[in-house]
């Protein structure tokens, strides 16, 4: 936009954009506000100004042991992401730097596994988990999350690695770097940003995964998704407490998410939109 925009037009656009943005954000905002209300306040009609109590947050911990599902979420999302990276990095690396005629087919096939509807394999997975004693275990769910996100991880890494220009590798070879030195001094530093982006996006995806994490856990390994879903049973109108639990469940990932807008586009469209 080289030309100057009239201030009037900019102000109009600003107002419209802010109104739209606030409407979209409103449910989250209202949840945060409600979490700071007392229970009677929470059901006393529309009110944007809470009394500012923190007792709900304390109650969520003391009455429902919030920390346990929270730790499960952290362990499961980080664990499955690191596992997926360990498996995917060599593969993506090989496909990006020594591609063959079949590389494209392999990538497309990996993508296709992502399209299998989860419910279609619910029964066998459930039975296998039951028979192997993996139901409600962190290990079982970690493996599950690793598998369902592996295609996206491979794809994201592949698109990042492929952007490392070939001439740089050739330059390092001319400069006398051996394979090991090439990896340590040239490739790794250039690949780290891509790996970090992949890590970030995958943690978000694993944290929010709400099919397997609800179906394959009950109490011990239940992450926040399952914990929150259990609030759906009508135990009563503890809305302020519910709001506090919700706020705590989404806050960490919301903040991570704000930092990963670009990677999100790329990762979720398999590199088709950048």
């Amino acid at each position: 936009m080289a030309r100057s925009v009239t201030t009037g037009r900019k102000i109009t656009a600003t107002i419209v954009a802010w109104v739209v943005a606030l409407i979209i954000f409103f449910p989250i905002l209202y949840t945060i506000i409600t979490s700071l209300k007392t229970e009677p306040e929470a059901i006393a009609g529309f009110n944007l100004i809470p009394s500012g109590t923190f007792e709900n947050y304390i109650n969520v911990q003391t009455q429902s042991d919030y920390l346990k599902p929270f730790m499960n979420s952290v362990i499961l999302s980080v664990g499955s992401t690191i596992l997926a990276l360990i498996i995917a990095i060599p593969g993506a690396w090989a496909m990006a730097f020594s591609p063959t005629k079949r590389t494209k087919d392999v990538l497309m096939w990996m993508l296709s596994t992502k399209m299998m509807p989860a419910v279609a394999v619910l029964v066998p997975i459930y039975l296998l988990f039951r028979d192997f004693g993996l139901l409600d275990s962190r290990i079982g769910l970690t493996v599950m999350l690793t598998l369902i996100n592996l295609p996206i991880v491979v794809w994201m890494l592949y698109t990042y690695f492929r952007e490392i220009p070939g001439e740089i590798l050739e330059a390092s070879r001319m400069d006398g770097a051996g394979l090991w030195q090439e990896i340590v001094y040239v490739l790794t530093p250039m690949a780290v940003p891509g790996i970090a982006s992949t890590l970030l996006l995958n943690i978000i995806l694993a944290w929010n995964e709400s099919f397997w994490s609800i179906r394959l856990t009950t109490t011990n390994a239940a992450p926040l998704t399952a914990f929150i879903a259990s609030f759906s049973s009508p135990q009563g109108l503890f809305w302020a407490k519910l709001s506090a639990a919700s706020t705590m469940a989404i806050a960490p990932i919301l903040i991570l998410g704000w930092f990963s807008q670009k990677q999100l586009v790329r990762g979720l469209t398999f590199g088709a939109v950048k």
Binding site: L22, I24, P27, S243, A249, L254, Q261
Partner: peptide, 20 residues
């Protein structure tokens, strides 16, 4: 603000809308 709902896990989104 606009991007935020995407990071809300589905059970939370459903509960917020259902109750609040």
């Amino acid at each position: 603000l606009v991007i935020s709902p995407f990071f809300v896990m589905p059970p939370v989104a459903a509960l917020i809308w259902k109750n609040l």
